[in-house]
Computed example of a mutant assay.
Amino acid sequence: MNKIVLVAFCSMLAACGFQLRGQASLPFETIYVSFPQGHPIGTDLKRLIKAGTTTRVIDNAKKAQATLEIISVMNDKQIMSVSGGGRVREFELFYRVSFRLIDAKGVELIPTNEIALRRILPFTDAQVVAKEGEEAMLVREMQSDSADQILRRLEAVKIAETKPKPS
């Protein structure tokens, strides 16, 4: 009976169209990643590209087929709600990344684009240290999520093939 249930479950899963994401395929062989100093999103992007694609990340923008420019990265925290006694109950965390992708000729393949993420952080005065750790974890998660979103947008880029004109 267990085998029948297992086979039925596997066939339903296959029939629904589910498949693992697999390896990303970027439409260029080499890429240069430019990012503001001190922001780990550039390192995350380089790691994602190296691990999940056949595209090579190189250290010279002039030799790259495409350049991914991380223009700005911003973290922000605002009070979202307060109690009747005036104590903070929730914070709203914001993470914004602006980027663009240009090819070797300077043509924008992806014009300046922004990814904006937000998370809600419940807050209690009794757990200040724990909430600081939770905030750092949420910011790290938003950074990782934005790097994944940038990689998916890079995958969607279509590069026009230049064919030689017949003489």
Rank of each mutant, 00 (worst) to 15 (best):
S83E: 07
R89V: 15
T43N: 07
V88E: 07
R89E: 15
F18W: 12
R89L: 15
L45K: 01
A15Q: 07
V88T: 14
I41N: 02
T54K: 07
L93W: 10
A14F: 13
L6H: 02
F28R: 01
I70H: 04
L101F: 09
V73L: 09
T43I: 14
G38E: 08
D44S: 01
I4T: 08
S98K: 05
F28M: 08
Q23H: 02
G86C: 09
K46H: 11
I58Y: 03
P40T: 07
F18N: 10
A61P: 13
S25F: 15
N75P: 01
F18E: 08
T55V: 09
G52R: 07
V82F: 12
F28P: 02
T53I: 06
S72P: 00
G22V: 04
D76A: 13
S72T: 10
L48I: 13
R21D: 12
P40Q: 10
R89F: 15
R96K: 14
A61L: 05
I58T: 08
D59G: 15
H39S: 09
D76C: 01
A14I: 10
C10H: 00
R87G: 05
G84D: 14
E69R: 00
A64W: 03
T55I: 08
E29S: 04
Q37G: 14
A15F: 14
R21T: 12
A8T: 15
L45F: 07
V82C: 06
R47Y: 13
G17A: 04
E69P: 00
R87K: 04
Y32N: 05
A8W: 02
S98Q: 08
S98Y: 05
T67S: 03
L13M: 15
P36C: 08
T30G: 04
T55N: 05
V97D: 07
V7A: 11
A8M: 13
I4C: 06
P40F: 07
C16Q: 08
P27A: 03
F99H: 05
F9N: 03
T55P: 11
V73M: 08
E92F: 06
G17M: 09
G17P: 01
N75Q: 09
G52F: 04
G85L: 15
R87Q: 14
S25C: 06
V88R: 00
S83Y: 09
G86K: 00
L68W: 05
I31F: 08
